[in-house]
Design a binder for these strands. Structure first.
Lengths: 352, 352
DNA sequence: CTGAAAGCGCTTACAG
DNA sequence: CTGAAAGCGCTTACAG
């Protein structure tokens, strides 16, 4: 990259003059057109681009800490929106004046971003959606700034998470309120995560409660509305079709509900539905019919992550700043029409 | 803010030593525990925070340009997600390695962010959701980096926009396929924008086509699902209730549809619905029933904005770099069940 | 084991 | 009207 020095040399002027021109102060500083043109020509030839870091350093206007949010760009953009909303409102609440950088990475390739992390390019980092490989890689590093992982376990870094077993227990406790012979499961298909902790925990909990889930009744679908439509199709072709479905993602479930509505499959009479909610309670609440959901509160998670970073950064001792903090966020259960409670249970279960 | 120099002085060591400790290289550089502790204590007392800009400058790892996306935090977070997706895929397509900063601002208070803009803290800027006051303020500045405005008009800055009149013409041309005596309008309620260009253009186009819209049939609602529920309620209480509704936002319309479904108001028999889509075609497609929408392609808009910045930044001449570019993006019409076409029109109108 | 010094790229008061 | 110089806060070879 060409610097001002290079431009100055080529234009046969001083660096000061280049700076004046670059900053659009040629007129007020009475730079004659001839000089101005020489500088412009040199910039042109060299393809000069100002170095933002140097400017910030010089201007000292970047005492602001920089927080980076690492996320992947699969179908979970909706959740990203919820996270951003949570981050933003927490930043405002705390009067935490920082700059938020969004970094999109590809699963299993976190190593590419290692340089930025190890060079301490940021003051704090929030990382979501890591694969096992990414996590292992991260754990092998020794960064000098606080890192918060979303929904992952770590000894080394701070974490904010919703306990998968709690979600599973909630879901299964709802399912046992009615007696279904068979239960269908719709899980998010991902090339990076073998089988999600939530699905594993759910199946485990089913086992404990003596609910058997047939392997043939587990559907994998891409995390999109179209994926939900496809999942609904496969569900309808199942042998011994279960009368109840547990779905891992609200995006998928909305696609399924759409398809069931199209085909006049009545919910919950022909199929009762419970879903995990990831994009906020509104998504499932305003569906037709509204969907019973165990909501993972993305906004709360984001707020907690920011809160941890904020506290870490205000610690004066570097060692303390790197001390991992672990915060569990409780899911919220919303009982709605897609999986209503038996009448006499409503009183014992007033959670919506 | 304390610097390394301050820490060094207090700890009675050199700046080099502080740097070593801060960067976690104490062990490999054989710093004795005593020195280490002195430094830690000094950092502790002074609350030392490293300056990221200085590090980046020194490491030269930030040749990467920094693009900032300015957005407001009202209910349009869904659109933000779509924008981010568009930005990201365009960055990848162009192999445009840059850092993306999200800046949330408050309408009518853009002036607060002027410092960052005028100090050229970023290499390029995308600004969305500006109010009239913000826009006027921006126009009064003379920044030295390319700026792209989303859905706004400007002589000074580049713009990417969907023409409001085209949207209006599309909507009205659909409405005239059937003959409705009255038409209801649901508009987004915003404290900052008097009445949106799209609604204004729609009413204008209605006038041209001799469709009269009664002032009493215009509902203002917050841009949320709950806002849609409220709007549906007010619609149902209208005198001379219109049999067709034009809604400015898909978020609102989804709330309305939910409410109509709850109350067994049949769509399109009792009320036919057309909406503008802002959060991507999926949102309206998978509704029950699917909603006829004129889709504002947020992802395309974002991609175009990035493309303009990319071209601007690759221009070598500063003057050329600041030359505004204006790009119009066409909306896409999806005809669906909420407002079907008369049978004999389907052939002339194969747009879904 | 630790320090003095150079230098990253820029801006700005100051001198002429 | 323009240049030489200082200095923003950091890291890193180098010297001792």
């Amino acid at each position: 990259m060409a610097t001002m020095k290079d431009v100055a040399k080529l234009a046969e002027v001083s660096v000061s003059t280049v700076s004046i021109v670059v900053n659009g102060k040629a007129k007020e500083r009475n730079i004659p057109l001839k000089t101005y043109n020489k500088v412009m020509k040199a910039m042109d030839e060299l393809g000069y681009q100002p170095n933002v870091s140097a400017r910030r350093l010089r201007n000292l206007d970047q005492a602001k800490p920089i927080i980076a949010l690492y996320w992947t760009l699969d179908a979970r953009t909706n959740m990203l929106a919820a996270l951003l909303a949570g981050i933003q409102s927490e930043l405002e609440k705390k009067h935490f004046d920082c700059e938020l950088v969004i970094r999109i990475y590809t699963n299993d390739q976190f190593a590419k971003d290692a340089k930025e992390i190890m060079n301490n390019t940021y003051n704090g980092i929030i990382i979501g959606a890591t694969s096992e490989a990414d996590l292992a890689y991260l754990e092998s590093l020794s960064p000098r700034m606080p890192i918060v992982l979303i929904n992952r376990q770590s000894k080394k870094f701070s974490t904010v998470y919703v306990d998968s077993h709690e979600v599973a227990t909630e879901a299964v406790s709802l399912l046992t309120k009615q007696s279904f012979e068979r239960i269908g499961v719709v899980a998010v298909e991902s090339p990076y995560v073998a089988s999600s902790q939530r699905i594993t925990a759910f199946l485990e909990e089913c086992g404990k409660q003596h609910i058997s889930v047939d392997q043939r009744h587990i559907i994998m679908a891409p995390n999109s509305l179209a994926g939900g439509v496809a999942a609904a199709g496969r569900y309808l072709q199942m042998p011994d079709r279960p009368k109840a479905i547990f779905c891992e993602s609200d995006t998928i479930v909305l696609g399924m509900v759409h398809q069931f509505n199209c085909l006049n499959i009545s919910i919950p009479e022909e199929v009762a539905i419970i879903s995990i909610g990831m994009t906020g309670p509104d998504a499932t609440q305003y569906s037709t019919p509204p969907i019973t959901a165990i909501d993972i509160p993305s906004e709360k998670i984001a707020a907690a992550a920011i809160s941890i970073l904020y506290k870490s950064l205000s610690k004066k001792n570097l060692h303390e700043r790197l001390l991992p903090v672990h915060q569990e966020i409780a899911p919220t259960t919303y009982v709605r029409a897609s999986f209503p409670l038996p009448p006499d249970d409503v009183l014992n279960f007033p959670r919506a």
